Computed example of a mutant assay.
Amino acid sequence: MSRPSPEIHPRFATPESLSDWLKPRLPSGSFASWGIEPGTKNVHNLWLEIFEGETSLTDSVRPVRTVNVVSLRVIRANGQVLVESHQELSDGSVRHRCLLLSEKMKPSETPEMAVTRAVREELGSVIRVEVENIGDVVRIVPGSYKRKVDEKNSMSYPGLPARYILHSFEVEVEGLPEDSEFCTEEEEEYEGRGDAGVANRAVSVKRHYWKWVSADSIES
């Protein structure tokens, strides 16, 4: 029986060194589409994820990107669920999502800590309640936590298999817009992360577009 490939947390000095490491390990042509094909990210994004400890890679012929993610089923009184319909990226492209609010976890975070940060970063600008701590308007529904592993090809990095460890919660957030659709702006997605020159070359999200949908239109 073969042993699983060991996970590594490489601290590549530059995105270029990461690029050199990845190219012979990925299918021909797939790496070249990163940041070129609409909706994809580039090697600078992946380097920043590794630098921040949000992503690990397996040291194998074809690496696997492993990410811990919180996924939030934000509900409101009438039973509707909030989804992110699409994103507007810094390169002018649009990435269609139709997904629940999700956020990559930081290395030192518990899932519950990541819930609060995700709401603050993604929705904090439109919450219409004056509070000192965003956690005061976020309520995790008791017993709603679920954990599962989802393995599939990464949409952001074509050709790179991904292993998502999903930490799912159902939450209620006080003060969100009642409008059926609304938008939030990302101030500086990579501000203060890694090297400023690298962050400037990464593909970032400029705007998030949200809508309330019926609960039965969302997978459990």
Rank of each mutant, 00 (worst) to 15 (best):
R73G: 04
V138S: 04
L100D: 03
N78V: 07
E187K: 15
V203N: 02
F12W: 10
G79R: 02
G194C: 02
S33W: 08
L123H: 04
V94E: 10
E151A: 12
V119S: 05
L46F: 04
P158A: 00
R95W: 08
D136Q: 14
P63K: 00
K146V: 06
E88A: 11
N78D: 15
I8G: 04
M113E: 15
S180T: 11
H208S: 15
W34D: 03
D91C: 02
G197F: 09
R139W: 02
E103C: 09
V94M: 10
E49Y: 11
E151K: 10
G159L: 06
P15I: 00
V69R: 10
E7A: 11
E170W: 10
I127P: 05
E191K: 14
E186G: 11
R128C: 08
S56E: 09
S90A: 06
A199S: 14
N78L: 11
E170F: 02
L22A: 03
A199Y: 01
L72H: 07
R3H: 14
F31D: 00
R11E: 14
R11I: 03
L123T: 05
K206D: 07
G124A: 04
E185T: 15
K148S: 13
R193C: 12
S108N: 13
E132K: 15
M113V: 13
R193A: 12
K106A: 11
G124Y: 06
L160K: 01
R147Q: 12
S93K: 01
A13E: 12
K152F: 08
G135C: 07
P107Q: 03
S168H: 10
E109C: 04
P142E: 14
Q87P: 02
V43P: 02
V173M: 08
E151R: 11
T184R: 07
F182T: 08
R207N: 13
T40H: 07
S85E: 15
T184Q: 02
W21S: 04
E219T: 10
H9D: 12
G35R: 03
S102V: 07
N42V: 07
E170T: 15
S5H: 10
I218Q: 07
S90R: 06
L160H: 00
W47E: 09
R117P: 06
I218P: 04
T110H: 03
L160Y: 02
V119R: 00
K41T: 14
T14N: 03
S85M: 08
T110N: 06
P10L: 08
V119I: 14
L26D: 00
E37V: 10
